[in-house]
């Protein structure tokens, strides 16, 4: 045996462990900083009071409410559209057919569109063309366009995990397609749909750039969906960039946002581990 391969082996091992350690170290630094500085000084009052002096003091109650409304609109619009498209793509069209392929490709592009372009589009289309102005409605609709690809992809995944035999047996029994869908496929595909829903909420919650010039900056309690409302992520941006002395509250808001997203992402992976996997084993 010559020594060279051993040396190469060591070198690669060093590289691999080096990268892993540095990556985990950075992740740890970010999370630790946000949790300790932001979480350490968090109290319930912060969540339930209104911001004062442009957010330097006070809480984030109206901002949480605006965020919730934006999310509600996003999901109310994107869920039916996404579910319909996912059913169409997974059950009613094949790779060879032009229509399905076109829809799929355009969704691929949609998934890659930078969020700032969604912002530009939302501003031009929803705010200006449809005349919705800077409003929670415009922001929610813009985000709905953005989460569709994620939603459709994991819902499709859910439908794919339904065994072929279900469809064959249903066809053999002479069931209509709509009852096959309603009684067999939909219940079986719910976990995938749920994962898509949760991931979509996560993506929408994390979004900032698409909301700056669609839902706006106003940090009061929104009176209606046509009111401008500030999302949590925009609040963090505004506090850290435009307001001097806003860092403390920015930390707290960042902590709240990170915790929300962690809960959301973990529940998504929990659902997919629990249900998606089991379905495949059962078949």
């Amino acid at each position: 045996m010559n020594k060279k391969p051993q040396l190469q082996d060591r070198f690669l091992t060093l590289l691999v462990y080096g990268s892993v350690i540095s990556v985990s170290w950075v992740l740890f630094l970010v999370l630790f900083d946000i949790c300790v500085t932001g979480g350490g000084s968090l109290n319930l009052e912060f969540l339930f009071s209104e911001p004062t002096s442009a957010g330097r003091t006070g809480g984030i109650a109206p901002i949480l409410m605006s965020t919730l409304f934006i999310l509600l609109i996003t999901m109310m619009v994107s869920l039916p559209l996404g579910l319909g498209s996912a059913i169409l793509l997974s059950e009613f069209s094949s790779e060879e057919k032009l229509f399905g392929r076109l829809v799929r490709r355009s969704l691929d592009v949609l998934a890659g569109v930078p969020s700032i372009c969604f912002g530009l589009f939302g501003n031009a289309f929803f705010c200006k063309r449809l005349g919705l102005g800077f409003s929670i409605l415009s922001g929610g609709l813009t985000l709905a366009c953005m989460v569709l690809p994620i939603l459709i992809r994991s819902t499709e995944e859910g439908f794919r995990s339904v065994p072929k035999e279900y469809r064959l047996s249903a066809a053999a029994l002479g069931l209509s397609r709509i009852s096959t869908l309603w009684h067999l496929l939909l219940p079986a595909a719910i976990p995938g749909f749920l994962v898509g829903f949760v991931l979509g909420v996560g993506r929408a919650l994390a979004e900032t750039a698409a909301l700056i010039f669609t839902s706006g900056y106003v940090d009061r309690f929104p009176r209606s969906l046509m009111d401008s409302g500030r999302a949590l992520s925009i609040h963090i941006y505004d506090l850290s960039m435009n307001i001097s002395g806003g860092d403390e509250n920015a930390y707290r808001s960042a902590f709240v946002l990170v915790v929300l997203l962690l809960v959301i992402n973990f529940s998504a992976s929990w659902v997919s581990e629990r249900w998606l996997k089991r379905k495949i084993v059962l078949s």
Partner: peptide, 10 residues
Amino acid sequence: GIPSVVYGFW
């Protein structure tokens, strides 16, 4: 899953 605005802030 961590949003870009949090990274930016950090």
